[in-house]
Simulated scan of single mutants.
Amino acid sequence: MAIEFTKYHGLGNDFILIDNRSSSTPVITPEEAIKLCDRHFGIGADGVIFALPGENNTDYTMRIFNSDGSEPEMCGNGIRCFADFVADLEGESRNKDKYQIHTLAGVMTPQLMADGQVKVDMGLPWLLAGEIPTTLANADEKVINHTLEVAGKSWDVTCVSTGNPHCITFVEDVAAIPLETIGPKFEHHPVFPQRINTEFVEVVRRDYVKMRVWERGAGITLACGTGACATLVAGVLTGKCDRTATVELPGGPLLIEWADDQRLYMTGPAEKVFAGKL
């Protein structure tokens, strides 16, 4: 079977996009996705994203397999690539610049902007321990500046779910964090029953922070959209950030806003790299 694909990236967080509109089931398995994501023996990517038929009156359904074969609820950089991808699939028949996308984290709304950026309504953040989930606090409590012992060191952490679970810790020098060794220890810590994405954040100004991320199921990536949103929320909750800020990732910046209606908005690029056939 031949499968056409398009390679995209959002700030270096890269994906294989597959037109899956003819079926409500992904056309490849998680095991096959692992092989495709291999950067030496496959195409190379942080994940494989499928554009499936919409559910519950949405335009499309988005599913994603990480490079380790696991399936996350959502992906912030991925959904910007997804929006650009489906707009390209529609071609001349396209009659809108905003889409309702069904995901495992709920309905997300990306909008293609005139300047080529994609702005996504990411919905409401989830703040209670039971929603994230984590056992750092009672299920109906928020986790703000809780102490967590990891690798023999105490870290002050704030936990937020933006569809995916995130643990954010603020540090003096984000470049000095040994991400490749400390990241897995956070991800698999027993207080996170569904594992965790971890963001290490350096506050430069209240409207500008630097962030590095260890992603659950993908490891070190150049950017994480849901993580950037969670970082801003954590910054506001801890009094370190304004409600709108630029989050600088290794792959580039994202503009994040936690609006007065409590909804999160993320604006950033999505870039097509190449297309091919499996």
Rank of each mutant, 00 (worst) to 15 (best):
residue 168 I to P: 01
residue 181 T to G: 00
residue 36 L to C: 06
residue 255 L to I: 06
residue 232 L to A: 06
residue 265 Y to K: 03
residue 72 P to K: 04
residue 141 E to D: 15
residue 111 Q to N: 10
residue 1 M to E: 13
residue 175 A to M: 11
residue 197 N to T: 07
residue 131 E to I: 07
residue 53 P to Q: 13
residue 73 E to V: 00
residue 143 V to G: 09
residue 227 G to I: 05
residue 127 L to G: 07
residue 189 H to N: 12
residue 238 T to R: 05
residue 137 A to Q: 14
residue 64 I to K: 02
residue 51 A to M: 03
residue 117 Q to F: 07
residue 85 F to V: 08
residue 127 L to V: 11
residue 89 L to R: 08
residue 206 R to D: 08
residue 265 Y to M: 05
residue 149 E to M: 12
residue 80 R to I: 11
residue 14 D to A: 07
residue 212 R to H: 07
residue 102 H to Y: 13
residue 6 T to M: 12
residue 245 A to Q: 02
residue 168 I to F: 07
residue 143 V to C: 10
residue 48 V to N: 09
residue 9 H to K: 11
residue 274 F to E: 08
residue 159 C to T: 13
residue 243 R to C: 02
residue 119 K to S: 09
residue 239 G to V: 07
residue 236 V to Y: 06
residue 201 V to H: 04
residue 235 G to W: 05
residue 118 V to W: 03
residue 203 V to T: 14
residue 166 H to R: 09
residue 148 L to M: 08
residue 116 G to K: 12
residue 272 K to E: 14
residue 30 P to W: 05
residue 11 L to P: 04
residue 219 G to F: 10
residue 266 M to L: 14
residue 85 F to D: 04
residue 224 C to D: 05
residue 66 N to S: 09
residue 75 C to K: 04
residue 161 S to W: 02
residue 247 V to N: 01
residue 260 D to Y: 04
residue 32 E to G: 00
residue 194 Q to R: 14
residue 105 A to V: 03
residue 243 R to V: 08
residue 168 I to C: 06
residue 22 S to I: 07
residue 24 S to E: 15
residue 88 D to E: 14
residue 87 A to S: 15
residue 180 E to Y: 01
residue 112 L to N: 09
residue 215 E to Q: 08
residue 190 P to C: 03
